[in-house]
């Protein structure tokens, strides 16, 4: 057995990196028994072709809800209550479901975390992979199957001819994730949303899947939105990062710069919580407390209850996301003081 050894290189910024997705002031509200919650509150970011932007945050921060809002897959109790989601200039949030469906596939693909539930257990993998071609290109079942085999080969599934008629449960976790990726990239979308694509997988398989996503991105020059809670994955796979907390983007910028010199105390806290490179027995610098519940978001800054820099102004005024030099932005009243702490 051979080993693919390869280089993780920073993707070169190409002149033709075009704006693919422009999310501007997105607000998603959920109706619950305790009233209406803002799961996503004024979120803005851009995704460029051939580049990866990571939405980084802990569970409940609204990162998955943002992805669902972009893809039009919100639950019935959740609504886009404001903002724009422009995919190549078209505002998806204003489209009717029927018009919107035309975008799913050729323009936008999505990969979910749980490949087993994302695939229908009663259809063969080949049928599910060919579906996109039958719907959007009007291919016959036979022609679609040929395309499906082609796709399976493209995402590195061995012996695609014999496995095209298998059912999802006959595939291992890693292979299922490959099938899901194949479905998402079947029609060469310009935007790929990967919602925790490797969280359910082992590290050695995660490395394979991330390598595949990287290769596909290089090949098709699509924009990738990577949604994850894993800082190390962001450090290795993404070009830019948007750090989310309690429904808000608190900091954004190029990954290397944000991680090397965080401007927001939450980003700093997250980085300090990573156990790597801290000696045995030493205490980690954890963030005290836990994120606010969505029905109980305080007035002012969302991070005030856990912030070491908190002042009176934080409890009164919510800091806007303001530019902080060289493609970066941060939502903190005291970002300049952070380096002195």
């Amino acid at each position: 057995m051979s080993t693919i050894t390869q280089t993780v290189s920073e993707s070169t910024v190409r002149a033709e990196n075009k704006l693919v997705l422009d999310v501007d002031g997105l607000v998603v509200e959920i109706r619950t028994p305790k009233g209406t919650l803002r799961a996503v509150n004024d979120v803005s970011f851009q995704a460029f072709s051939g580049r990866t932007i990571a939405l980084l945050g802990e569970s409940g921060c609204g990162k998955s809800m943002t992805a669902k809002a972009i893809a039009g897959l919100l639950d019935p109790v959740a609504d886009v209550a404001g903002g724009e989601v422009r995919l190549n200039g078209t505002d998806l949030a204003r489209l009717k479901p029927k018009e919107r469906r035309k975008f799913a596939g050729p323009e936008l693909g999505i990969v979910f975390q749980d490949a087993l539930t994302a695939l229908n257990p009663v259809y063969t993998v080949g049928t599910q992979l060919g579906e996109a071609f039958r719907i959007h290109h009007g291919l016959s079942a036979k022609a679609a199957k040929v395309k499906a085999v082609e796709l399976m080969r493209r995402v590195g599934i061995p012996e695609p001819e014999s496995r095209v008629d298998s059912y999802p449960h006959q595939f291992s976790g890693g292979m299922r994730q490959r099938v899901l990726i194949a479905m998402a990239v079947a029609l060469n979308p310009r935007l790929l949303i990967a919602d925790e694509p490797t969280t359910a997988l082992d590290v050695t398989v995660q490395a394979q899947i991330m390598a595949l996503l990287r290769d596909l991105r290089t090949e098709t020059h699509m924009a990738v939105v990577l949604i994850t809670h894993d800082l190390a994955l962001v450090a290795e796979e993404a070009d830019t990062v948007a750090v989310m907390y309690a429904g808000k983007v608190v900091e954004t910028g190029p990954v290397r710069e944000v991680f090397a010199r965080p401007h927001h105390p939450y980003t700093r806290g997250l980085l300090d919580s990573v156990p790597a490179n801290i000696g045995r027995g030493e205490d980690l610098k954890s963030i005290a407390g836990s994120p606010p519940e969505l029905h109980n978001i305080p007035v002012g800054c969302v991070y005030q209850s856990r912030c070491p820099l908190v002042q009176d102004i934080c409890r009164a005024v919510s800091p806007p996301l303001e530019p902080a030099g060289d493609d970066r932005a941060v939502a903190c009243h005291f970002s300049k003081e952070l380096d002195n702490v």
Binding site: I30, R31, T32, P33, S59, D75, P76, V77, E293
Partner: peptide, 14 residues
């Protein structure tokens, strides 16, 4: 509100 709640997934916010 009951009918509405029945429609709502339990772990919506989580």
């Amino acid at each position: 509100r009951k009918r509405f709640i029945a429609r709502m997934p339990v772990k919506e916010v989580a």
